[in-house]
Design a protein around this nucleic acid. Structure first.
Lengths: 349, 349
DNA sequence: TGCTGGCACTCGGTAGAATTGAGTGCTAAC
DNA sequence: GTTAGCACTCAATTCTACCGAGTGCCAGCA
């Protein structure tokens, strides 16, 4: 029975198999039902009889592209089947309405970066009916434009650092000694002199003296530099998590996915991993998180001046509408890049 | 049949009815099933026969405390039934384990206010298995300790304002004219002089000149004061939204609740409404949002020095474990108040 | 008068049997 | 190599019967 077995590792299928596989995948995406041979045969692109389709499906199943929930049922795609489908998708174009929607949105957004990203996640989620993720990468080599130490009261100071990418980070200090206004102001001056122009990666020469000013300065610098390892400087905005509820059927699956989404660090690392591997779509188990094995994740990097400035992502069921979703994600990521990168040459508008 | 109808608006039920109602409610909370007369009769507090219980239940149903899913089924509480139950709950004490959990948590948390509140929402949610909400109120009469204008580039400036409550707000400015370092520094000096000591509610005298510095100053002040009306200065942190998935059975309900939780403004206003009305529990339709009619919401204010500094809340099904949940919310809110208010006298520890 | 035991009745849930039909695999013929 | 035909499989549906939890009502009892 295994005669003429094609190379199982071959990345391409014979054209007819490919057509059949694609028909099965797209119909399953539409209907969420197992797909039978006859409906495939009646599809426009397939010009053979159900019987032929059946024998091809047997072979596709043997090769791992399709699965059968039970004997006498149609086929559903496996993750590998979806993978083939996605790899051979001609990249779609966004519908005119949605294109307009994105343009309108970016023409009208105002406010701080965080607000824009937050709203972007909502936009993307509304456009696609999937859960959207927007990650704003912290630029680890943005330089410090200003570092100011503000005296809240004798035991509370706040270090406010402004970076060249417009981000602001604050750190509380709770020294064990009383700090008066003058001490704080002097520390602030020294911090400014010390830190301006440096990045979080720069080693700076902190004063080794034992007076209060020096202690404040050391405290401030160390808590600022402690920012580095946690990686959680990255901003994450998740929009449309309610769509999780209608993307999956099992309550348990919904719970697990929501639980993952709650852990923003996980989400960021998932997105970063995918970008690092150059993946734009992770299907089922490809994403590496067992609780997300029923999900597909799409990411599109946001690139400004050749620098990775963040990413947008979409999370849906493995039977998601890849073409539309990918088009939406890529359109939004481009608009986002243009929004934050493009207006350096232009005036605001 | 309506002879001896007790006053339907009476807030108190005759003791036996009350006992029966409470038995029904607590059993239903435990089992999620309709409760029959015999299991009520076998409950410790009820010393009458099932037949008597039945006749009382008929009357409780007529008065709107109980409902029957269908003939030949037991009774389930209505919102009114839960209300009575909650109003007559002797306030419970938190279990020792949980008490320890809260203490440990607050003994160990570090980091900025936002981080603490965020983690608190996770704590509360883990303790109760319900979705937790933590609201940090912005103190509208906190005064400004520092206002600094930082020059990102010629067309982008960032106004960073630090308030006496330790909060930091930033605003981008995008002037139509080129701004050099000196202009920005001068504007920053003037802003400092103008704003320090004021609150967001204070009217300030902005310069009316037409030079760039004055324009920057005016821009900065107006965008700072624009903060006021939006009300979204309030910080909201929602923890354990995944618990929504197992608190309700209908997918549609889950979706609706999640959709509400996504709109943080709604959540804040719900909590504020409840606090304003002095409610600590809103059951079903009491909360005023139709999509939340299957939910009960518990809130506990966080009060520091007599000032309302925020609130914590819990959202669960109407059949939630009120006693435990209320105890948890109130314990956490008190620890929170102590954490942020208490350490002004003490040094950090 | 109020409580209770007894009883007929209701009706959702479950279990089992029968039926349906979508879909399959195989084979023989084209 | 493709296809029509056919026997077969099996989830889903329908129907029936039945069970039993729970009710409402009533007559008798304290």
């Amino acid at each position: 029975m295994a005669r003429r077995a094609t190379n199982p590792a071959s990345t391409d299928l014979d054209p007819r198999k490919a057509t059949i596989l694609e028909a099965v995948v797209s119909e399953h995406i539409d209907t969420a039902q197992p797909v039978g041979s006859s409906s495939v045969a009646s599809s426009a692109d397939v010009a053979v009889s159900p019987a032929t389709v059946r024998s091809e499906m047997v072979s596709l199943e043997r090769e791992g592209y399709l699965a059968q929930p039970h004997t006498s049922a149609g086929r559903i795609p496996t993750d590998k089947g979806y993978r083939y489908f996605v790899d051979h998708l001609r990249s779609g174009v966004l519908g005119a309405v949605q294109q307009q929607q994105v343009s309108d949105f970016f023409a009208n957004v105002r406010g701080e970066v965080e607000d824009v990203l937050e709203q972007t996640s909502t936009l993307l989620s509304h456009m696609t009916s999937y859960t959207a993720v927007v990650v704003g990468a912290t630029n680890t080599h943005a330089s410090i434009l200003s570092a100011q130490l503000v005296n809240i009261d004798a035991h509370h100071q706040l270090l406010v650092s402004v970076f060249s990418d417009g981000s602001v980070i604050k750190h509380s200090l709770n020294p064990h000694f009383d700090v008066d206004y003058e001490t704080c102001a002097e520390a602030s001056r020294q911090l400014n002199a010390l830190l301006i122009g440096t990045t979080l990666e720069t080693q700076v020469q902190v004063p080794s003296r034992h007076d209060h000013v020096a202690m404040l300065v050391r405290d401030a610098v160390s808590s600022l530099h402690a920012e580095q390892p946690t990686t959680d400087g990255d901003m994450v905005f998740i929009g449309g998590s309610s769509h999780v509820a209608d993307s999956f059927d099992g309550v348990e699956t919904v719970r697990k996915v929501l639980a993952i989404l709650e852990q923003e660090l996980l989400v960021v690392s998932l997105v970063q991993d995918m970008l690092a591997k150059g993946l734009s779509v992770a299907i089922g188990s490809e994403n590496g998180f067992e609780p997300l094995s029923a999900c597909a994740v799409i990411v599109a990097p946001v690139t400004i001046d050749g620098e990775r400035a963040g990413a947008v992502g979409l999370l849906g069921p493995t039977r998601m509408k890849y073409q539309e979703a990918m088009a939406a994600a890529s359109a939004v990521s481009q608009h986002l890049a243009h929004h934050f990168g493009g207006d350096e040459e232009h005036a605001d508008h």
